Amino acid sequence: MAHLLCIEDDPDTCELLVEVLTAEGFGVSTVLSGEAGLSALDKRPDLVLCDIDLPDVSGFEILTKIRADNLLPIGVPFIFLTAYSQRAHQLQARQLGCDDYVTKPIDFELLIAIIRHRLASATDKGTEKSELRLTDREGQVLTWVARGKSSSDIATILGISERTVNFHLDNAMRKAGVATRVQAAVKCAMLGLIEP
């Protein structure tokens, strides 16, 4: 049974989420603040539903911290569930790396379809190790990225040009399906393809 973490400050919404999602066969934990949500990540949920407007730490700040500090394994879906329907909020959420954005009032049929799809996609990512292949040079470059080195540092260490380093980084990011070099390094480390 998939375990969902709901970070939502409205007790009535929490109660409704628990009722509906539990009836759909999910395990559900709820917390009423951003700080409590960050602490609850230790329980390793399979998916996170998070409001943006929270009393202490915003949902944007939570997602930023999760991505910056690798508080969730790669592939654990993060979905915003919010009353903010403005394009600017949705754009900011996508730029921070959320997997989906659902607006209130909640269409539970849609939400459940999104959750099931995201969980199925996350399960598929578990098979990526056999599919994701790095060349030796891509592996070397990402290993040094994981150790905090810049492209120019890596070029010096490996005795190649910075342009060549960036070429290998671009290839590795494309193969890993991520937007940044750090995300590529984290993903490949978690799949055991590099050892930082």
Rank of each mutant, 00 (worst) to 15 (best):
L4Q: 05
I7D: 14
I7W: 12
E8D: 02
D10I: 14
P11F: 11
P11D: 10
D12G: 04
T13H: 02
C14K: 02
E19T: 04
E24N: 15
G25I: 07
G25K: 04
L32W: 03
L32M: 08
L32E: 09
A36H: 10
A36M: 12
L38K: 09
L41V: 11
R44K: 15
L49Y: 04
C50Q: 11
D51W: 01
S58V: 15
F60P: 03
E61L: 15
K65H: 13
K65G: 12
A68N: 12
N70L: 08
L72M: 09
P77D: 11
F78G: 01
F80C: 07
F80I: 02
L81R: 00
T82H: 01
S85Q: 09
S85E: 12
R87M: 09
R87H: 06
R87K: 06
A88Q: 04
Q92L: 11
C98N: 07
C98Q: 08
V102K: 00
V102I: 13
D107N: 13
F108G: 15
L119Y: 09
S121V: 05
A122I: 01
T123K: 12
K125Q: 08
G126K: 10
T127Y: 07
T135N: 10
S151K: 04
S152M: 04
D153K: 03
A155C: 02
A155K: 00
I157C: 10
I160L: 07
T164F: 06
V165F: 02
V165Y: 01
F167N: 14
A172Q: 13
K175S: 13
G177E: 14
A179S: 14
T180D: 06
T180I: 05
R181S: 12
V182W: 08
A189P: 04
L191R: 02
L193C: 12
L193T: 03
P196Y: 05
